[in-house]
Structures are given as C-alpha cells and as structure tokens.
Design a protein around this nucleic acid. Structure first.
Lengths: 108, 108
DNA sequence: TATAAGAGTAACCGTTCGGTTACGCAAATT
DNA sequence: AATTTGCGTAACCGAACGGTTACTCTTATA
C-alpha cells in the first residue's frame, strides 16, 4: 500500500476534496454532501489524505473537522518544478523558431 | 482506464523514467536496462507515459527513442501551484508566530 | 431515556495496476 | 539465408483501488 502525495493527488475525487478544503474547513459529512458517492467512500478518501498528512482532523464532539495542510504538497510541487526550466526552454526555442520563420518571411 | 498526468506521475518508476529522459534521450531497451523489472513492464510504463503525451517515440530502424515532452506536466504543476500561496501564508504566519515569541522573550 | 446524527470500519465486489512469461515480428547482422 | 536484436503484446496472476451495504459506537437532542 503506497501512501505518498503523488498517489494521494492521483485520484480526481481526492483532488476535489483538497480544492474544497482549501477554501473552507468542513466536517466529514459536509465533505460527503458535496459528492455523489457514499459517505464511507469519502471517509476512505479522507483517511488516505490524512495518512499522507495532507489533511488533519479536529474532533469537535461527534464531528470531525477536516483541515488542509497544504505544505504537504510541497514535495510534489518541487518534483514537477524541476522540469519547469526544461519546458520553459522548449517554449523559448519554439518562440525562437516562430521568430525565425517570421524573420524569413519578412525578408521575402 | 483513467489516463492523465496525475495518474502517470503517481507511479515511482514512471517518475524515475521521466527523470532519466529529462537528461538524455534513450531507447526503450536503454530505459529498461536502468531498472530491475522486466522489459515488458517498462514497455507498459512507457506506453502509459506516451498515452498522456509525456513522452513521444521516434522510431529509428528497429529502435524507438523516447523523447520527453515536459510541457505536458504543466497542468499538474499549475494545479499544485494554486496552493502555493496557501502554504506560503502558513509559513509566513508561522514565522510571525516565531517572531512574536522571540519578541516576547526579548521583553522579559 | 429513547432516538437521531456523525462517522469509523468490516466484508464484499468488480476493475485496474503492475508485474511476469511466452510469443511474434520486423530490422539489423552474420 | 539464418540468426540476433529491439520491442510490442497477449495471457495470466496477485494485490491494490474505489465503490457498496451493513453494522457499531459515541455524542447530541427530544
């Protein structure tokens, strides 16, 4: 059972949960109400998010509030960011290519 | 069969393949040699990466060169980046908190 | 005190995942 | 022409995924 940030954000429902919790803190039931799937299914998704630290629970009476811990996304962010330079260079060279074509056309 | 960037980079072997191909273009066999698992397994991973556009193939005779298309990572990058502000604010407020404690101690 | 509400969990189920071995086929080499 | 090399793919397998329903427990409410 792999349990890391990459695997956590691979599921579209879990990404939606993160999006929800980024704007407001919700209880488990409040999260579940936003989706078509059953509450236990949501409970499982929340458990996975909790196991890799992306959310924390704050128990208030019989309710559990889900708090996002966005800094847990940083490793995934940094991994992708490595390639930022790579794709920026590509885009740059594409722009250069376009520029050269335009220059060539101008010369005609 | 979901096939998107998030799912593609969820697997650690596929991330390693991306890391390899970011520095050099390799043939399918050359990629496979870098791993413990079988060549067909690598072939499957490459197929998945290709299906979501992260790599392209360039057939040269009987060899297939794997070319990375890093710009295909941009959507995932942007998705995580949304929360950049969120975790920066958290870190800022943590720093403020530390600052306040230090200030308090200074006053003592 | 009986009942309702919030939420975890177990048991189950079909599908997907990630690996294997075995095979086939085209291109290169001998 | 025969053989080796590069690589895709099919068939298979066990494990993990993502969902369900049914049950339980605790806390709040009537």
């Amino acid at each position: 059972m792999r349990r890391d940030v990459f695997q956590a954000i691979a599921d579209p429902i879990r990404r939606e949960i993160i999006e929800l919790l980024a704007t407001e803190t919700l209880s488990v039931n409040e999260v579940a109400e936003k989706f078509e799937i059953s509450r236990p299914a949501i409970s499982k998704h929340l458990k996975i998010l909790n196991e890799c630290g992306i959310i924390d629970f704050n128990q208030i009476g019989r309710e559990r509030l889900c708090l996002i811990q966005p800094q847990k996304l940083i490793p995934a962010f940094l991994w992708i960011k490595q390639y930022h330079k790579l794709w920026e260079d590509r885009i740059d060279s594409f722009e250069n290519y376009i520029y050269q074509i335009q220059t060539k056309n101008d010369k005609k």
